[in-house]
Nucleic acid binder design. Sequence first.
RNA 1: GGCCCUAUCGUCUAGUCUGGUCAGGACACCGCCCUUUCAAGGCGGCGACACGGGUUCGAAUCCCGUUGGGGCUACCA
Length: 538
Amino acid sequence: MGGGGSQRALHRAREPRPGPCAIVRPLAASSVVDGFEDLTATDPPRFATHWSSTMTTTLSGPVRVRFAPSPTGNLHVGGARTAIYNELLVKSLGGAFILRIEDTDRERSDDAKTRQIIDAMHWLGISVDEGPFLQSERYARHSERAAELLSKGLAYRDFRSSEAIEEVRKRAHAEGVTLKSLAPEPTAEETERRLAAGDPSVVRFRMPEEEIVVHDLVRGDVSFPAEVHEDLVILRADGSPTYHLSVVCDDIDMAVDLVLRGEDHLSNTPKHIALFRALGATVPRFGHLPLILGADKKRLSKRTGATSVEEFQSQGILPQALYNYLVLLGWSPGDDREVMTKDEIVAAFTAARLGGSASVFDVDKLAWMNTQYMVNLSDDEFMPQAKTFLPAVGLAAEANSERMARALTLHRVRSANLVELAEQVGIYFSDEVEFDETLSRKYLRKDENLVSHLTELSRRFATSDFTVDALDGVLRALAEEVGVGAGALIHPTRMALSGSKSGPPLFDLVALMGSERTEARMAQYGEYLAALPPEAEG
RNA sequence: GGCCCUAUCGUCUAGUCUGGUCAGGACACCGCCCUUUCAAGGCGGCGACACGGGUUCGAAUCCCGUUGGGGCUACCA
């Protein structure tokens, strides 16, 4: 089969295409193209052996794959995972990763969403080799291909309304017979007559009456019996191409040879295979990824929690953590490794280890994964990301100070995410401290002379070096002198400075707080303690 | 309803193709250790082969059925 054969377009004839993607134009909107270069990266082609889970087929590169989201919403974590696996395939096998925005439904598509999807991919560190391409810009090409199918007799005009068809379809299902047996195609005479009369019609692709087998990379062979195929609309009454036609045309023109997408498309694949064949193209290889479920085991939805990459970003999740977590949701390296660098993931990745069953999105495990990166990321990678959350808590001006760097270092290990971290470091820059009454009373019970001890401690701090060791020495010496345990002074001091019972090691806290703030807060806390109303009995 | 996918601890999974290690790891949970607190970390515990039939000396693994979950069934993508 040739790459297109002789085509007799109805309206405008196209020049012969020089290459597979030559007619594909990049995004027109410059706002979308801007900054996109960061996303693209070229890697030298590499070869690796991939084993299918059910067959001994080897998957070898290079491959041309694509990610084709529709801009009707933000980038969903399921979509993100699909994009990641596609990228991984190219990184391990060589080839090209194409981004195509499926915006043919202009009513529901939105350029801001397109921008958002690209930003989210960029943030996650997914690099694209070609695109983004806008499917809507290829309208003419899709119409042309439909006309070609029509002229070759592989598709036909259908003058029935969708309501009328729906009626027949219901009846066919009820009687357990095929749609076509109840509603045959219009005859040539009828077509001619109604066309002449100017009756509205759609163009319907005639599905072959034969079994179609999908050789699926993750599921093995999946066959669809001849009786289940129904002819599908490829051109609407207004002449616009439908999704199935557009996808296949674009995959052909972009020379996509491996389609790795969500399981929701598995049942559509026979349609696509038939279309590839009818259009004289080589059928690509397919792989269908399972869907991601919510905690309720239903398809992940907003009801169950965050679903978009953007939401996790704003929750202060690190992109490296989300990426790593998503990779592990449906794939494993085969050994016990979980926290892995992208290089390690690329090196270990094979399509054969992709799982076929749906998995539940576990926010707890994501939180754990995030902790791993909060703790272990290098300063170079961590600090810039942490700083982006500072303006939201009013610390924009302090973001690049030495004190802030120390504060972030001290607190990153005890924050679950960047939002929490930004909130925690606020204590070093604010003058508002709120004391906990219950705990304060408890401290008072442990040491009835607490107020005078704290006053003395504050006085000694004032003449001490503000180093961890010096401060430590000062406090312990005083504790010993007055005959209390160090803890009896440590905990109230922590409360005085931070308003909390927990936090970094106390002397790190004091040293970073600085003598001025330390003195002020300890004085303030002393007053607070002295003014506490007597405890109510019972 | 029809067609298709899928099924190991609560969750993510290894093991299934090439039947035979107390079914391994991780999250969560519980306990202990470390420690001025909180984290992080270390150690330990709890906890699964959906069910029913086969085949076999032997089944998580192979076969059949049942049940559960999911997807598709548009002039949406």
